[in-house]
Design a protein around this nucleic acid. Structure first.
Lengths: 138, 138
DNA sequence: ATATTATTGAAAATCGTTTTCAATAAGTAT
DNA sequence: ATACTTATTGAAAACGATTTTCAATAATAT
């Protein structure tokens, strides 16, 4: 059980460990699909019935702040979250089943350098998401 | 004045040309910043006072459907729109002044092929956005 | 154990977006 | 030009997601 990594991250940053937060962490950590606040709420309430939706919002806020989860941008909407993984990673989303995979895209460095030279921009950050069909769905 | 390109696109797709739509098109076409519905509303109302916010939403919907504008995803939110440009292009956003530039990223083909080979995904689409400081702001 | 104070859930408030609807105006036929 | 058909309009209401408020509760330090 490595949800403890997130739990101790919360603790180390001065946040208290509560049943509500454990339920949210247990739900989001290790999910292979991006989850919206409502989805987190529904799933987490199976573990801790008294959980309130407001607390889900507040906990997701903190997890995002600590870079433990990241927002997933999709044509449907941009309210879903998934584990941030370790280091800088890019997302690969299955348009059929919604599964999310990570890949590291260090190959992007040459591209950004090129763009930087061409446009004069000082590039600080980038977002890359690929959409397609996963092995099972294609 | 090339807003007429968008106007005739609307016309050719069976939509009527109205003062409200002209005002929205005039506002969004050629904007160097991504604009939210409210921002479009405020700007467009300087040209056509009777304009309603609902009509802004409905017109943006049609422009997006015709691929004349595209949604811009940002940390703050994903409700802003900007001209779609011609062909597939990627976005470069200035984190300071909000200016948007385009660049074509055909260089991405080798990357997506790589990922496809590694993961088994059949990649259909990709989103790439770069963030940084433009020439004036850095 | 006790005290302190962050955290909680419920309700209300708020914000952005969508739906409903009768009035209006664009395009078409006359 | 005129009349006709029907898409489009703006206002108000409805809606859904998110945020704020607040008194009660529970986690941590003492």
């Amino acid at each position: 059980m490595t949800t403890e990594i997130w739990i101790s991250q919360l603790q180390e940053n001065g946040y208290r460990i509560t049943s509500a937060r454990r339920a949210v962490v247990d739900t989001v950590y290790g999910s292979t699909h991006a989850l919206t606040p409502i989805e987190v709420y529904d799933k987490a309430r199976k573990k801790y019935r008294a959980l309130g939706l407001v607390t889900v919002y507040r906990t997701l806020e903190k997890l995002e702040e600590l870079h433990l989860i990241q927002r997933v941008h999709q044509p449907i909407g941009c309210q879903a979250f998934i584990s941030a993984g370790i280091g800088h990673q890019h997302l690969l989303l299955c348009q059929n089943c919604g599964q999310v995979e990570f890949f590291d895209g260090d190959d992007l460095d040459s591209l950004t350098k090129n763009i930087s030279r061409k446009t004069g921009y000082q590039i600080k950050e980038h977002w890359l998401q690929l959409f397609g069909l996963c092995v099972n769905c294609k």
